[in-house]
Amino acid sequence: MEEKHVNKSALLVEKEDWKKRQRNNRLKKILTISSPIFVLLLWEILSRTAIIDPRFFPPPTVILSTLYDMAASGELLEHVKISLYRILGGFLLGVIPAIALGLLIGMYSPFRHFFQPLIMALMPIPTLAMLPIIIIIFGIGEFSKIATIAISVFFPVVINTAAGVMNIDKIYTDVARNYGASPRNFFFKIALPGSLPVMLEGIQMGQAIALLTIVAAEMLGANSGIGYLIWMNYKAFLLPQMYVGLVLISFFGYLFSLVIRGLQSKLVPWK
């Protein structure tokens, strides 16, 4: 009888803990949703009452209406398509070699000593400061914009990947060596999985940098894309259209972040 009573008490405690976790999760979701809604409502009220100048800060409802009109006319789709093409092309062009080189730098000391000074010297240079050189090399076509994004993405990914490999617990590398693991097995079964958590953080950082870079690159040297849309509407003082571009950048940044977080939960569920 006493044992049954203890088991029943344990089940009740566990049930209460589960209910508490559920309440906490619901509260977190409510807070996550409520903060942007609160800011948008406040912005709407302040703009409608002219507490803030509606010429410079048009109400969110006006921005959404403008977004709908631009989407319906087909104008917006063309800018979005070209920007996404540049972002994805540059992102892949920067991430793939960065992962390969980061793994080699983390695994092999000669690679580390050869490439690390170059990376440390080039990384502090803003990518946009290198834009004239990129244009000289690749011209003013699409590839120069893709290369600009690739360069900006490359550095955080290669550094995080190398750091991820070097931070792998030494016991795994010792076991691999003791059992005579081939370089191929060490690469794919130790270095790559072990570096994934830190590598994915670098990729997350890289996607944010890619969005920043594409906007700046399209403002400086393009006649299409979301950055061009923002800059041209700003110069024409069409501020609702300008804000549409900013909303799109924010949306894609959030979407890409969710995709990478989802990928992270699948690839490294222990994190």
Rank of each mutant, 00 (worst) to 15 (best):
N7E: 14
K8R: 15
S9C: 09
L11S: 15
E16S: 14
K19D: 14
R23T: 07
R23Q: 12
R26H: 07
K28G: 07
K28Q: 09
I33A: 13
S34D: 07
F38K: 11
V39K: 12
W43E: 07
L46M: 13
I52A: 03
I52D: 01
F57C: 03
L67S: 07
Y68H: 09
Y68M: 11
A71T: 08
I82P: 05
F91I: 06
G94T: 05
P97F: 00
P97L: 01
I99G: 02
A100Q: 14
L103H: 05
L103V: 02
L104K: 02
I105L: 08
M107Q: 06
Q116N: 11
A121W: 08
A129D: 03
M130R: 03
L131D: 01
I134F: 03
F138G: 09
T148G: 10
I149S: 00
I149R: 00
I149G: 00
A150H: 01
F155K: 04
P156T: 07
A163Q: 13
I168H: 01
K170S: 11
A181N: 07
S182N: 07
F188T: 03
A191Y: 09
A191H: 06
V198W: 08
E201K: 10
I203F: 02
Q204N: 15
G206H: 00
Q207K: 05
A208N: 10
I209W: 09
L212A: 13
V215Y: 00
V215D: 00
E218N: 03
S224P: 04
G227T: 01
L229Y: 11
I230C: 04
N233W: 02
K235H: 10
K235Q: 12
Q241T: 06
Q241N: 14
Y243H: 09
Y243A: 03
G245W: 08
V247K: 08
L248N: 09
L248Q: 09
F251P: 01
F256G: 06
V259A: 09
L263A: 15
L267I: 11
W270V: 12
